[in-house]
Design a protein around this nucleic acid. Structure first.
Lengths: 217, 217
DNA sequence: TAGATTGTTAATCGATTAACAATC
DNA sequence: TAGATTGTTAATCGATTAACAATC
C-alpha cells in the first residue's frame, strides 16, 4: 500500500534543533568562516556529529567529504526548509504584557512571522498602537482576516479565554495557531496548533533544581 | 556496580506533560470533581491512558482501581514533584519587553519562581520599578545574590550578551538558568541550564505550515 | 458480581549512536 | 597519498503503546 507522496516526514527533534544550528551559522558568517563540518558544529553544541549530519540532511543540503558544508548554502537550506524565506501574515490576540513583548520581537519577521494586527477584548486598548501594530476589538478578527490573507494566530490571552479565542481564529480561517497559553486547545485536524508550553520548560528546571537540593542536603 | 542512590530519573517527556495535567486538574477542582481516571484525562488531552498512568506514576501517586485518582491528592503530588510547593528566589536579567512581561507573570510565584530583582545594562533603567521589581545595574548581581540566597537566573537579554551574563550568574553562585535567548550557553556541569527555545517552537509551526501550503498548491 | 480501572510487564516504535565504505 | 569528512546502514537505547493480572 506504498503511498507515492509519503515524502518521509522529518523527525520533529531534528526540526527543533535546526534553529540552533542556524543561530551558530550566522555567527560564522559574521566571523568570515565559509565552510563548517558536522564534527565542528557538534562539539560547539555538545551533540554527536552523526546527529548533526542527520539533522542537516533533512534540509536536503549536500556536503563535500573532507570539507564539510558551505556556510551560506547551509543557512539557505535551513531557512528554506523552515519556511523562513518568506513571511506569513499573523494576528496577535491578547495585547497584555506578553503579547506586547511578542509584537516587539523585530526578529520574527526574519523567521516567517509578520504581525499585521493585534486584538484585545479590553475596549480601552482599542485604537492603541503597540510597537507599530494597531490594537483592535476581537470582533474585527473576521473582517480583517478576510481582507489580508492571515495564516497565523498567536495566542497570548489568559488561559481561560484560550479555547474561545482559538475557535474565533479557526472560524476566521487561520491555518496555524501559536499557543502561548497553558491550555490544551481543540481545533480541527486541518489547523496546526503549536504549543509553547512555558510551564513544561519551567517544570524541567524546578524539578531538577529541587532534586539537586535534596541530594546536597 | 548497582548504585544505591540511582533513584530512577523520571523521563523528561513525562515531566514536560505534568504541568498540562495540573492545569486540567485545577479546572476539575473548580467544577467540584473529586476523582478522575487516566482514561478520562487521556481522552481530554488526546493521549493514551497508559501514557497518562505512567506519567502520573513518576510523582509517586497511588490510585484506586475502578475509581481513579483523588484530584486533590494528584494536584499535591504533581506540585510537590515539580518543586512548586515552595519558591526559589530568582533574578531577571534583561529588562526589555520580554523581561518586563516575565516580571508581570504573577503565576510564576505559584510555580516555584519568585523574582527578587531585575538587572539591566542600560543605566537609564536603573532604579525603575517594573511590576514591583526594582531594576539594578548588572554589576550589583554579585552582592545581591549573596545577600538573598538567589538560586535561579532568568535570561532575557539579547542573544549576543547571553554568554557573558550567564558567566556572571554562574560566578554569582546561581544554581539554575532559565534561558530565553536563542544562544547555546556554556556552564559548569553543576549549573542547570534550561532553554526555552522559542524559535524551535516557531520552526515546527512554520515548517508544517509551508509543507501544507506546498501540498494544497 | 461484573466491569472499570490501576499497576506492571512485554512488544513496538522511533530517535540516537556506532560503524564503515565512499570520496575529495 | 593520507586523513578528515560525508552519507548510509546497522545496533542501541529509551519512550510509547499494548496486553493482562490484580483489585475495589
Amino acid at each position: 500500500m506504498s503511498n507515492g507522496k509519503k515524502s518521509r516526514q522529518a523527525p520533529l527533534p531534528s526540526v527543533r534543533r535546526l534553529p540552533t544550528y542556524l543561530h551558530l551559522l550566522k555567527k560564522y558568517v559574521e566571523s568570515g568562516r565559509s565552510a563548517v563540518s558536522c564534527t565542528h558544529i557538534a562539539s560547539e553544541l555538545s551533540l554527536t556529529n552523526t546527529q548533526v549530519r542527520k539533522d542537516l540532511a533533512v534540509t536536503g543540503i549536500i556536503g563535500k567529504p573532507k570539507v564539510g558544508y558551505d556556510v551560506g548554502e547551509l543557512i539557505s537550506a535551513i531557512t528554506a526548509f523552515l519556511g523562513w524565506n518568506s513571511t506569513s501574515e499573523a494576528f496577535l490576540v491578547g495585547a497584555g504584557s506578553l503579547g506586547s513583548a511578542l509584537l516587539g520581537y523585530q526578529d520574527f519577521r526574519q523567521h516567517g512571522l509578520n504581525f499585521v494586527a493585534a486584538f484585545d477584548s479590553d475596549p480601552r486598548k482599542s485604537g492603541q498602537r503597540i510597537h507599530g501594530c494597531e490594537v483592535l476589538p476581537l470582533e474585527e478578527i473576521y473582517s480583517l482576516a478576510d481582507q489580508r490573507r492571515v495564516r497565523i494566530g498567536v495566542l497570548a490571552v489568559p488561559a481561560r479565554a484560550a479555547q474561545e479565542v482559538a475557535n474565533m481564529l479557526v472560524l476566521a480561517g487561520i491555518k496555524a495557531i501559536w499557543n502561548f497559553t497553558p491550555a490544551t486547545l481543540e481545533a480541527p485536524e486541518s489547523v496546526i496548533v503549536e504549543d509553547v508550553r512555558l510551564y513544561s520548560s519551567l517544570a524541567i528546571l524546578t524539578s531538577r533544581l529541587s532534586e539537586n537540593l535534596r541530594e546536597t542536603k
